[in-house]
C-alpha cells in the first residue's frame, strides 16, 4: 500500500507555493513520516511558524496551524505549550526567521527546555523577500544585499542552540530524506526542547546568485559536505570549515522539562505544601 500523506495534509490547499525543487517539501515530507511513525493524532498537534517561505508550511498541514508574525513563532508556541502541555507543539521556520529576528526567542526556549520541537529549514538566505543575506549565509556568498559577497561571519545554528542549553540538537539535510526521518523521530520523541537544523536548498535565491541555479546541483553541493559525526571529526581542519556534521549532535535526557516542572509547582501549591 502506498504511504498515505493525506492524513496530515490539506489536499485542497495544494499545489503549494514553493518553487519547483525547493527543499521545504522534503522537510514537510519527513515531518509527515514522523507524525505517522509516532502515530500522533493531527488534532493533538499544533504547528506554529513565523514569516517566510518555510513558514507557509503549516497552511498545507491538516492540524492546528498558526502562522504568526516574523520571528515570533516560538513565543506563541510557548503560550500554547504552557496552557496545553499535554499536546504536541511543533515550530517550523526558516533561518532568517528563527536565527535573526527570532534569535532571542530561540535561545530562551532552548534554555527553558520547554517541550517544543523546532525544525529550521536552513537555506542560507531570505527567500520570500528576494534573496537578502541571513545569519547563516556563508562568508563571501552573494545575496541581494551582499552583491560583492557576504561580509558577515555566519552562525552555526546547532552549536548556538546547544550552547543555549537545548537538551536535543541534531542536523539533517535535504539530500538524505531517510536520515531526516530518523532524526525527526528522535527529536519529536525527546522530552524537552528539541532543535533540528535541516540544511536545505534555495536554488532560486541563493543558488542563482552563487552558480547553483539548478536544484540538483545545489542538493549535491549540500550532500557532498554532509558528514556523519565520526567522519566529520576525522576530517582535516580545512575540510571541517567546508563540511558540516549531521545526525544527533547532542542529547541530554537528564534535564527537567519546563512545563512538567511548572506542573509540579501547581501540584505542590495545591496539596497544601
Amino acid at each position: 500500500m502506498p504511504f498515505d500523506y493525506m492524513t496530515y495534509l490539506r489536499e485542497e490547499k495544494l499545489p503549494h507555493m514553493w518553487c519547483p525543487g525547493c527543499g521545504i517539501g522534503i522537510v514537510v515530507k519527513a515531518m509527515i513520516h514522523t507524525f505517522t511513525d509516532l502515530e500522533w493524532d493531527p488534532s493533538d498537534i499544533a504547528i506554529i511558524s513565523g514569516i517566510g517561505c518555510t513558514s507557509r508550511a503549516p497552511g498545507y498541514m491538516d492540524m492546528n496551524t498558526l502562522h504568526t508574525t516574523h520571528g515570533r513563532a516560538l513565543s506563541f508556541a510557548t503560550g500554547i505549550k504552557m496552557h496545553r502541555h499535554d499536546k504536541h507543539v511543533v515550530v517550523i521556520a526558516g533561518d532568517g526567521d528563527m536565527s535573526a529576528i527570532g534569535g532571542n526567542h530561540l535561545i530562551h526556549a532552548a534554555r527553558r527546555n520547554i517541550n517544543i520541537n523546532v525544525i529550521v529549514n536552513n537555506n542560507n538566505i531570505y527567500g520570500m523577500t528576494g534573496g537578502q543575506y541571513s545569519p547563516t549565509t556563508p562568508l563571501g556568498a552573494k545575496a541581494a544585499t551582499a552583491p560583492y559577497g557576504n561580509l558577515e561571519p555566519s552562525f552555526d545554528l546547532v552549536e548556538l542552540v546547544k550552547g543555549a542549553g537545548a537538551s536535543f540538537v541534531a542536523r539533517g539535510h535535504v539530500g538524505n530524506g531517510r536520515q531526516l526521518n530518523t532524526i525527526l523521530k528522535k527529536a519529536f520523541d525527546h522530552k524537552g526542547f528539541s532543535f533540528v537544523e535541516v540544511v536545505s536548498n534555495c536554488h532560486t535565491q541563493f543558488g542563482r546568485r552563487n552558480k547553483m541555479a539548478d536544484p540538483m546541483n545545489m542538493i549535491s553541493w549540500i550532500s557532498d559536505r554532509a558528514k556523519p559525526m565520526k567522519k566529520f571529526e576525522a576530517l582535516s581542519d580545512e575540510d571541517k570549515t567546508r563540511c558540516f556534521p549531521v545526525g544527533v549532535i547532542h542529547e541530554d535526557v537528564s534535564r527537567p522539562e519546563y512545563t512538567e516542572t511548572y506542573q509540579e509547582l501547581i501540584d505542590s501549591l495545591n496539596n497544601g505544601n
Binding site: 499544533a46 506554529i48 498558526l66 504568526t68 508574525t69 515570533r72 516560538l74 513565543s75 506563541f76 508556541a77 510557548t78 503560550g79 500554547i80 504552557m82 496552557h83 496545553r84 532571542n104 526567542h105 530562551h108
Partner: peptide
Amino acid sequence: IAAMGSVIGASLAGA
C-alpha cells in the same frame, strides 16, 4: 514581544 506572543498563543489554545 514574546510576552505578547505567548498571550495570544495561550488565548488561541483557550486560555
